[in-house]
Every structure is written in C-alpha cells, then in structure tokens.
Design a protein around this nucleic acid. Structure first.
Length: 398
DNA sequence: TGGGGTTAT
DNA sequence: ATAACCC
C-alpha cells in the first residue's frame, strides 16, 4: 500500500555494467521487503491491492554525470553551476561545506578548491536520466519518473514471482534493506496554509479535524495530505512514458528589446527543434513563457500559447525545410501579445515549450498526410521514424 | 535561486 | 492561461 523507499544504493548512471548489476538487486530488495519485517508495515494484509514499490532516488545526479564524462573530476570537490548558482555537487564538495542551490560566491568562499562545471545545458543529463528509466523499465514497465533523478518502480509482479520460487529456508535467510517511505514535507503554499491553521507538525496534521481541513484546502488535497501524515500513500505508480512536453529556457539579468528577445528565442527554438526531431512525435502547440523584472513575485511567469499550423507541423522533423522562420514568426506574435514593445520592458527569463505531442506514425493523420503531402514519404530525419504508407492497408485504421 | 517537468483548475 | 506541485 505504501511506497517503499530504498536509500540510494549506488549513484546510478555509472558504466552500464555497474548500473545493471545494481538494478538487478532491486527485485531482491523488493522480495526481501515483502517477505520480512517490512511486510507488516508495508503490506498490512495480503489483500489484492498490496503493492511493492521501490523508490530509486539518485543523489547529486548532474555531478555524477559530469564525473562519468570526465573521470579526472572524480576525486575533486565538484559543483554544477547554472548561472550564479551551484545547483548540485558531489560528496567531496559536500564534505567541505557546499550545499545544493548555494550561491557560487558562498560556495567558493566555503571551498576555494571547488571545481565548477557549467550545467545549464541539460542534454546529457536528460539522456542519462532516460537511460536509467529505461533500465528500470526492463524489470517492470510500470516506472514513474519524478524530475530527472527519481523513479518509482512497481515491482509487485516480479516480487510475487520470486517469492514463489524461493524455498522456505531460503526465504527466512533473506534480509531487508529498505524502509517504509513516509517522510513528506508538503509544498510551499500548502505549508503556509497549514501554518495559518496552527498545524506545524505531522502529529498536528494527524489529529486535526478532517472536516475543517477539507473546508480550508478542498476535499482532494485535505484527504491526501492527511493520509500522507499517517505514512499512507496508496497512489498508484503511473508509468510516465515519453515526455508530454519539451521546453528550453534561459534566464538572464536583462532583456529589454525585441531584437534581443528574438535572438534568444531563436536559440531556444533551434535546440528544441533538434529534440523534437529526435523524438519523432510532433507537437501541435507552442508556448512562450516570460518572467518580468520587478514584480518580485516568487512565481511571476506569464505565457501565451497557440496551435501550430498544420503546414508547419509537417515540416517539423524533416530537417530540410526552413521551419525556423514560420516558428519564429509565431513566437514573436505571442511575444508581442504579452509584451507591449512600444513601452519599456525588462525581462529576466524566456522559455519556449512544445506540447500537445502526437504520434505521426499512427491513426488517420498519417493517411491524410500521405495523400495531401506526398513529400512526407521522403522524410529523412532519423530513419527509424520514417514509415512507408505504401504498405499500409485500410484495416490498420479504425 | 536554475532549468527543467507534471497535473489541476 | 495560470497556478500549484515535484526535482
């Protein structure tokens, strides 16, 4: 019922061999957990909804990726820098007092020997992240991603198979290395709400009136967090599958002209188009996001989105036609819709997002596209996504 | 505070 | 379109 947390056994990534060996142990950990003491806590009854869920949390993931790319960094205190922040660091650096999300100034002061690598381009981290997820998916397809460095794996089926294979004497020799996952720290806004209600601890939350909490927070959130306060989290593991959106963003001190904005947008767009091309699916919506200076609001982002015209969608991923020009035009329209360029403005962030992704390879769209735009059958992106409509029969379409 | 992601409203 | 949440 509850999610079972396993402390980081290994930092993941690694070379393939290590990672695989480590992953192989996951099923054993799960089997151990359900056969031994933890069972009484995790699986109070062997009812049909009991699940064995392993939480794989990779620590200082970006730093690990950097150390794998450049082994010379392995024995040095290493920080990964984005703008003027050290977003994460390895254990060497931690020992010397560097913390996550620490200012570069403070970090250097604490640890003058700190080696910094720039981690603003997430490409390699993203690729590694999906490698880890794909590895876990070999054990069970039910893997839910949380950020780039956490995965929840539902191992119920696998554990049940293993338990059936074990003899009873082997079963009693198995030991447990997991623990019940019940620590939680509830989001910023909700925390503020709870504070206002005089709820400051897990115990406060456990004993607080359900009715009042439901009135304050809404029934959905109230019931969920109160169950969480008892360590109960029966939410299913939802397989993440391929991403639902692609975005690239850049923050900066100041952007105050349309030309400047256009240049930044073009950069973001170029990277995004590469990613979309590799993915093989096609986005049907674009969004432009900005953050304005001042307002000092913690969450002051604004966005405008629109459908991508179908003739532009068709050019996406073909790599040969100029899709930049029409896309930039669209994005600049969205830009001017948000920002009055005749008035002074000051932006500190621009982001472009592709979402509403649809497979091209399937369903009726493919058939329609084929007859309407014969050029599509000669696309050349990665090859593996090309398809031959000539072999397609009507039975393939509902 | 970065550069991402998700779901709910 | 925004707001909240996660890392």
């Amino acid at each position: 019922m509850e999610k079972l947390g396993v402390e980081p056994e290994e930092e993941g990534g690694g070379d393939e061999g290590d990672t695989e060996a480590w992953a192989m142990e996951l099923a054993d950990v799960g089997a151990a957990a359900s056969s031994q003491g933890v069972r009484d806590q995790v699986l109070p009854t062997r009812n049909s909804s009991s699940r064995v869920i392993v939480h794989v949390d990779l620590d200082c993931f970006y730093a690990q990726v950097e150390m794998i790319s450049n082994p010379e960094l392995k024995d040095k205190p290493l920080g990964v820098q984005q703008k003027y922040l050290v977003v994460t660091c390895n254990y060497e650096a931690r020992k010397l007092g560097v913390k996550k999300l620490m200012n570069v100034r403070d970090a250097k002061e604490k640890c003058p020997q700190l080696v910094l690598v720039n981690g603003e381009d997430l490409t390699r981290y993203r690729e590694m992240s999906y490698k880890v997820t794909e590895l876990l998916e070999e054990f069970s397809p039910v893997v839910e991603r949380l950020g780039f460095d956490e995965n929840f794996v539902d191992l119920t089926e696998m554990v049940e198979k293993r338990l059936q294979q074990l003899q009873s004497d082997e079963l009693s020799a198995v030991t447990v290395s997991g623990h019940v996952y019940n620590n939680q720290c509830i989001g910023y806004k909700t925390a503020k709400c709870l504070e206002a209600l005089g709820i400051n601890s897990v115990h406060d939350l456990q004993t607080f009136s359900s009715k009042i909490l439901e009135k304050e927070l809404g029934i959905s959130l109230a019931q969920r967090i109160q169950k969480l306060s008892f360590g109960e989290d029966n939410s299913p593991v939802i397989p993440s599958g391929p991403p639902q959106s692609f975005s690239e963003e850049d923050s900066f001190k100041k952007c105050s002209s349309e030309v400047e904005a256009k240049n930044k947008i073009e950069e973001l767009l170029a990277s995004l188009l590469n990613r979309v091309c590799q993915d093989g699916r096609k986005p049907h919506t674009v969004r432009l996001i900005i953050r304005r200076y001042s307002s000092e609001k913690h969450y002051g982002r604004e966005s405008r989105q629109c459908p991508i015209p179908s003739h532009v969608i068709q050019k996406l991923g073909t790599g040969n036609y100029d899709v930049m020009t029409p896309m930039v035009d669209i994005l600049m329209k969205l830009f001017r819709n948000m920002v009055n360029v005749k008035m002074p403005f000051h932006l500190t962030l621009l982001s472009v997002c592709f979402c509403n992704l649809k497979a091209v390879n399937t369903a009726k769209r493919g058939l329609i596209d084929y007859y309407l735009t014969p050029s599509l059958s000669t696309t050349s992106c990665s090859g593996k996504h090309s398809f031959k409509m000539k072999d397609t029969h009507m039975e393939d379409f509902p």
